[in-house]
């Protein structure tokens, strides 16, 4: 079953640029970027049970850091992407370390306020971010290779997304991933087993910021322009909704949710005024009736029907 899913996914990823137009490839790039954002959100919320409500801000830090590195300093794009990830995670670690001193929930509140503060910084730090005019991003470069179109960027976006997916699986299976889940299930039990609870939470949050920064770097591969408006709380909620639709606490859910809900939200674009109600209602209804996500919900139904 899992092998089949991977085979189908690989076939689709390879076939996509051959049979479709530029817009679809652009959409695929964007969805893959959101997949990485969702993986980051999955690590902090799904695995560790902590909140990061500044995902859009870290994504933005990644975009600006990678974009400025590539555009102004002409770094090769793998380096730019890494700079994006490291910049985001460095800031993330500092915030996590301070915010997690008292209550868990302070991380949610501090990141909530941080998200707004960062959007303000993006809008007002004209010298660096271009402020309300936005930032033009030069095409990504590597040894004379220049990624001009979405199709040029596509293979590298796919490669980065797969690398991050593999990284997520490695982390999940390592001691670190087990301590994440131990902290989520019971802090006392985790502590009794010798898991340093607070450090584990800070690390989870820092890694999630790193993923968001890398996603920002991916964005600079295929996009030429960024405006602070698209880096607000709305984007954080979009990522959260994707993870919730896919299923909190499962890697497959994070990926599936990003793709499934990414497509839905692309359709919702036709009716922007319903967008907010739709996101909110989806969050509420899933928390009420399908806290494990769409796929687990359907699987349960399917199994239930067969047994009946």
């Amino acid at each position: 079953m899992r092998f089949l899913a991977i085979a189908v996914a690989a076939a689709v990823l390879i076939a996509l640029p051959l049979v479709t137009t530029g817009y679809v490839v652009y959409l695929a790039n964007l969805l893959l970027t959101f997949t990485v954002l969702c993986l980051g959100m999955h690590i902090v919320i799904g695995e560790t049970g902590q909140f990061s409500l500044a995902h859009a801000a870290f994504y933005g830090i990644g975009i600006y850091a990678a974009g400025i590195a590539g555009t102004t300093f002409g770094t090769p794009f793998p380096v730019s992407i890494l700079i994006g990830g490291l910049a985001a995670s460095a800031i993330g670690f500092v915030i996590g370390m301070v915010a997690l001193r008292m209550r868990d929930i302070y991380l949610a509140l501090a990141t909530f306020a941080f998200g707004e503060a960062m959007q303000w910084v993006f809008l007002n730090w004209n010298a660096v971010t271009g402020g309300p005019n936005g930032l033009r991003i030069a095409p990504a470069r590597l040894f004379g290779l220049e990624l001009v179109t979405d199709k040029d960027a596509y293979p590298f976006v796919v490669a980065t997304a797969i690398a991050m997916l593999v990284l997520t699986v490695i982390v999940a299976r390592a001691r670190l991933g087990r301590s994440f889940r131990a902290v989520r299930e019971s802090e006392i039990a985790a502590q009794a087993m010798g898991v340093p609870v607070r450090r584990t939470k800070v690390v989870a949050f820092g890694i999630s910021a790193f993923f968001a920064g890398i996603a920002g770097g991916m964005f600079t591969l295929f996009s030429t322009y960024i405006h602070p408006d698209s880096l607000g709380f709305q984007t954080t909620i979009l990522v959260l909704t994707m993870v919730v639709v896919g299923g909190l606490g499962s890697i497959g859910g994070a990926v599936g949710g990003a793709i499934a809900f990414g497509l839905i939200s692309e359709l919702l674009r036709q009716a922007p005024s319903f967008q907010e109600i739709a996101y909110g209602a989806i969050l509420i209804v899933f928390m009420m009736y399908a806290p494990k996500g769409l796929f687990a919900f359907l699987a349960d139904r399917f199994r239930g029907a067969r047994h009946a």
Binding site: F51, I105, A108, I237, L240, V244, E276, I277, Y279, G280, A281, I282, L283, I284, M287, M288
Partner: peptide, 10 residues
């Protein structure tokens, strides 16, 4: 908490 975020958007 996610449900309250949902309510805020609704």
């Amino acid at each position: 908490v996610i449900a309250t975020l949902g309510l805020s958007y609704v």
